[in-house]
Simulated assay, not measured.
Amino acid sequence: MIERIPIALTGYQDTAATPGADVDTAAWRIISSPADCEAADEAIIPCTTSHPDVARKLLTECQPSDLLRVTGHLTLPGTADGGIRLDVDTVEILWEAPLQEQPPNRPTDDHTDRDRAIQALAEALTGLPCTTTAGEQPDVRINIGPIGLHGLDVTNCHNIDITTTHTHQLTNAVAAMHATLNSSPPHTGTSLGPLSPADIPGFFDDLDLTELTGGIDANRPEKKGATAPRASHDLLGNSPVAGADDSDR
């Protein structure tokens, strides 16, 4: 029968955690260094966890050389040639190691725009106006960070904890955004852009009012008398003279 011994250890993370064979599991190694022990007395202990929160923490927040405090059960081998394993229930980061430096003479890419986008998305999710049921605690974590990089980029990694209610509201908001985008007609051809307040005076200055009115300037005093009857005749045709009766027509 395999013996499981409750244990708590403090030690440095030896290797980066890797996802386990099952979902929400992780595996890594810890260097157990009791106080005042010699280097030869240090032990490297394989660790695993099947707790989703602990696995996510190891995979996203911890790095080699971090000082960890772990609790769990030490599983002793059933045979002499077997290996021990620490099944971890909780993990606490006591000290974070400095970020690993990039190798020298390595060309660096400019990720400024990507980093700004990550920061803006994290701030938008953090400030999302949502309603919360009284007493409801966050139980969903959203991890946002860059991918495809060598080494860790903790500065641009964000963890946003939200409630189940917030998750449903965020899902509905994204679905509404997709519906709005899909219902918008495709943009084709050339259209006039909106005018700014500074552009409006110049727009009217460029208009040729004489050309728009067909050469008629009815606002001049000397033309009002001639223009008005002619315009009325063009609009109504021959109209009866004021005061005339039917016999005069």
Rank of each mutant, 00 (worst) to 15 (best):
E136C: 02
D139M: 03
A55T: 00
G145I: 02
P46W: 04
I30L: 15
E136Q: 14
E96W: 08
P240L: 14
L86E: 06
T213G: 02
T10N: 10
P146L: 08
N159M: 07
L99R: 12
P129D: 12
H178W: 04
A40P: 00
G135Y: 10
L121G: 05
K57W: 09
P34L: 04
A176E: 06
T60F: 09
T188E: 11
E61L: 11
H187S: 14
T60Y: 09
E96I: 11
H166F: 00
S191W: 09
C157N: 13
G135E: 09
T131P: 01
R29T: 03
S32V: 14
L74F: 11
H150N: 05
G215V: 01
F203Q: 09
W28P: 09
P34D: 07
L235C: 14
L94E: 08
S239N: 12
T171W: 01
Q169T: 07
Q137E: 10
H178V: 07
D53N: 02
D41Y: 01
G148M: 04
D87P: 00
D24C: 07
A242Y: 13
D115H: 12
L236N: 13
I7V: 15
G243D: 14
G83R: 13
G215Q: 01
G127W: 02
P221K: 08
A244K: 13
D161H: 08
P98Y: 13
G78P: 00
S50R: 07
L68Q: 01
T126V: 06
D234W: 15
R220I: 08
A173G: 04
I118Y: 04
T165R: 10
L207W: 03
C130W: 04
R29L: 01
A242Q: 12
D113G: 01
L152P: 09
M1C: 11
D87N: 11
P221L: 12
T180V: 05
A122F: 05
